[in-house]
Simulated assay, not measured.
Amino acid sequence: MPEQETTARPEGRILTELCQRVAAHYQQSGSTEQELLTALPWLRFIRVREPTVFNRGMLEPSMCMLLQGRKKMLIGDNVTEYGPGNYSMAAVDMPVSGQVTQACEEEPYYGVRIDLNSKEIADLIVSLQISLPEKNNETANAGAWVTHSDEGLQDAFLRLVKLLDSPADLPVLSKLIKQEILYRLVTAPTGATFWKQTLSWTQGKGVGEALAWIKRHFAEPLKIDELAKRVGMSTSSLHHRFKELTVMSPLQYQKQIRLLEARRMLLSGSEDVASIAWQVGYESPSQFNREYRRSFGAAPLQDVQTLRQLGTTL
């Protein structure tokens, strides 16, 4: 994605003020952490002071707007580089890889993130009787994507961040602004994927339920025929729709969750690689080592040692 020029447009001024206010919250808090929690449990800020390595992780349902700096994200086989004014969004839990490519002490990478859930989106669509947006090929139906924000969405985020300075108004007005943000996301050209996820939630079946089951039972053997029956779909339909949304098959999705959980366990202090391999569902430690190296570019202990030297947390 080409770099967006925003300084000459009204939205450029909104982004500048939004970035300044996020930076001020870090200064006031004295926090040295990358993520800064706010008074709203679903809103947080992100600051990175130097470029990062290309790192794999699980992107939970959320929307994160980039305010300063640049970033690359790998979703499936597609790498997107983006800058201020663009945002990444995940409608489902998605294994992705990301890298901050432009950041320094004087001009850190800044982002603002909100967590999303299907129930809120479903309630909004039903109560406001929002019409189904036309599908935009830009998202390619995937459960995560990167696109550009318009002035209205940026302004809603600015008002939300300003509201943090008025604690008395926060409980009521924050809900209204979040509804506006969700409305703008759902009615955007890329909002059709939100509809898919909302239908999965309201019906209680389908790909959404399959995703949830795999996350809960990632260490168990996965039989696609049984999973399809469990969620009320044919095997071929489940496989097709699952891959359309997550850019991978159910078995590949399970493997990514296993490897990410193993990496988290290793980083938390355990160095018994064989034991962790068994715990996340591998029958062979040698197979685990091969797939770990293929996914993260290094053997388990070597990878974790590098992450610790970089001060990375998962």
Rank of each mutant, 00 (worst) to 15 (best):
G111T: 08
N137K: 01
R113I: 11
G143T: 09
I130R: 07
E134W: 08
I125L: 03
A122P: 06
G111W: 12
N141C: 00
G143R: 04
A142W: 07
G111D: 09
N117F: 08
V126K: 07
N141D: 10
A122G: 02
A144W: 05
K135I: 13
L128Q: 14
Y110D: 08
P133M: 15
L124V: 02
N137G: 06
S131E: 05
I121C: 03
S131T: 11
Y110T: 09
A144Y: 03
I125D: 00
E134G: 15
I114M: 10
L116H: 06
E120P: 01
N117G: 10
Y110K: 06
T139I: 03
Q129H: 11
E138N: 06
D123Y: 07
S127M: 10
Y110S: 01
A140W: 06
N141I: 00
L116R: 02
V112E: 02
G143K: 01
A140K: 02
P133S: 10
A122N: 03
Q129W: 09
A122M: 11
Q129M: 10
S127E: 15
K119L: 09
P133T: 15
L124R: 09
G143D: 05
D123P: 04
L124G: 08
E138M: 08
S127L: 11
I121E: 05
D115A: 14
E120T: 13
A144C: 11
V112L: 00
A122F: 00
K135E: 14
E138P: 01
